[in-house]
Simulated scan of single mutants.
Amino acid sequence: MTQQSLTGKNIFITGASGGIGAEIARQSAAKGANLYLFARSLDKLTRLKEDISKRYSVNIEVFRLDVSDTDGIKTTFSEVIQKVNTVDVLVNNAGFGVFREAHEAAIDEIKGMFNVNVIGLMACTSMVLPVMRKQREGHIINIASQAGKLATPKSSVYSATKHAVLGYTNSLRMELSDYHVFVTAVNPGPIATNFFTIADEKGTYVKNVQRFMLQPDYVAAKVVKAMLTPTREINLPRWMNAGSVVYALFPRLFEVVGKRFINQK
């Protein structure tokens, strides 16, 4: 698949203040893309903008946005879209998780994860869909998770949100195929970011899987390389995705044989 040039393309990234969001921003700028970055921390976004601007001559604008606030999404995205007119790529990266057994998950915590990981993602997507359909081109990239394919203990709520993201993504891809708008699901395993500061309060999971963790720049490179190509899914690492395939085919066997592996939290 030959990638279109990203030079001058308008790329929207949510959750861009750190982790793979920030790395996607850096690597997109290196390819000449204009960046529109959204996150709750305007201070972090401003520092990222300054850092990127020192190295690349691209347009960068930053916006404070909590994607759990659907009214805020509508207001902010409307203002930006009215200004730029075209949206070439939307990377729905904002998200968080908390690892708890189902009986310990508070309702507010459950609502919070769904509001950010699912409703927020859908709200951001709904803002760019009319533009991309009218353009008859564009790319929506949803950062999901291997947890959306292979649920594990203590991630019932988080896995449920990512299952929802994958269902939405797969449907959206079919809806937009006649409009030449690409839709990609990114399903990484654990990534070495501050995600686990919230998700893994005791540090048990990080300790157990640290040697398997992906680096943010590696994941970002895969995402940026796929931009404006008809890539259906990005599954990282490959061996972990193989586990999800085996699980889909032989779920009972996997749950018995793989019990020790999936009980890492």
Rank of each mutant, 00 (worst) to 15 (best):
Phe195Asn: 03
Asn115Met: 10
Thr161Asp: 11
Val87Trp: 02
Ile141Ala: 04
Leu214Arg: 04
Arg26His: 11
Pro251Asp: 05
Gln27Phe: 10
Ala151Thr: 12
Met1Gln: 06
Ser126Leu: 12
Thr2Tyr: 13
Lys134Glu: 11
Leu236Asn: 08
Thr70Gln: 12
Tyr56Met: 02
Thr2Glu: 13
Met1Val: 10
Val181Glu: 03
Leu6Arg: 04
Ser244Leu: 05
His163Arg: 08
Asn208Gln: 05
Glu104His: 15
Val128His: 05
Thr169Gln: 05
Lys225Leu: 09
Val157Gly: 00
Asp108Gly: 14
Lys225Ala: 12
Val223Phe: 08
Gly72Arg: 00
Asn117Thr: 09
Ser159Thr: 08
Ile52Gln: 04
Gln82Met: 09
Leu214Asp: 03
Lys222Tyr: 07
Gly167Lys: 01
Phe182Cys: 08
Ala106Pro: 08
Asp88Arg: 02
Ile234Tyr: 03
Ile143Val: 14
Asp200Ala: 05
His103Cys: 12
Thr2Leu: 14
His180Ala: 10
Ser53Ala: 15
Tyr247Gln: 15
Cys124Gly: 08
Phe99Leu: 11
Ala29Asn: 09
Ala29His: 07
Val181Ser: 00
Lys207Gly: 08
Thr193Cys: 12
Asn115Leu: 10
Lys202Asp: 15
Met240Gly: 08
Val219Asn: 04
Ile13Pro: 07
Arg173Tyr: 10
Ser244Cys: 11
Ile191Ser: 05
Gly120Leu: 07
Glu201Ile: 13
Thr76Asn: 01
Ala29Phe: 08
Phe96Arg: 06
Gly21Leu: 01
Lys259Asn: 14
Gln3His: 08
Ala102Tyr: 15
Arg252Thr: 15
Asn263Thr: 11
Leu37Asn: 02
Thr76Val: 07
Val183His: 00
Thr231Ile: 06
Arg47Met: 05
Tyr36Gln: 02
Cys124Ala: 15
Pro216Ala: 10
Thr161Gly: 04
Thr14Gln: 04
Thr76His: 03
Glu233Gly: 00
Ser145Gly: 12
Asn85Val: 06
Val165Ile: 11
Leu6Trp: 02
Glu255Phe: 07
Lys134Ser: 15
Leu45Asn: 02
Asn263Arg: 06
Val67Thr: 07
Gly21Gln: 00
His139Val: 02
Tyr179Thr: 12
Gly203Glu: 06
Gly97Arg: 09
Ser78Trp: 02
Thr46Ala: 13
Ala105His: 10
Arg211Pro: 08
Leu176His: 02
Ala192Phe: 14
Met1Trp: 03
Asp88Gln: 05
Lys259Phe: 11
Asn92His: 06
Phe96His: 08
Gln215Leu: 13
Val89Lys: 00
Met1Lys: 09
Thr193Asn: 00
Leu42Pro: 05
Leu129Cys: 07
Ala144Arg: 00
Ser57Arg: 12
Lys134Pro: 01
Thr86Glu: 13
Gly167Gln: 06
Asp108Leu: 11
Gly138Gln: 01
Phe261His: 13
Ala248Gly: 14
Phe96Tyr: 15
Phe38Ile: 00
Gly148Leu: 00
Asp71Asn: 13
Val183Ser: 03
Val89Ser: 02
Ala106Gly: 14
Ala164Phe: 07
Thr76Cys: 05
Lys265Met: 12
Ile140Arg: 04
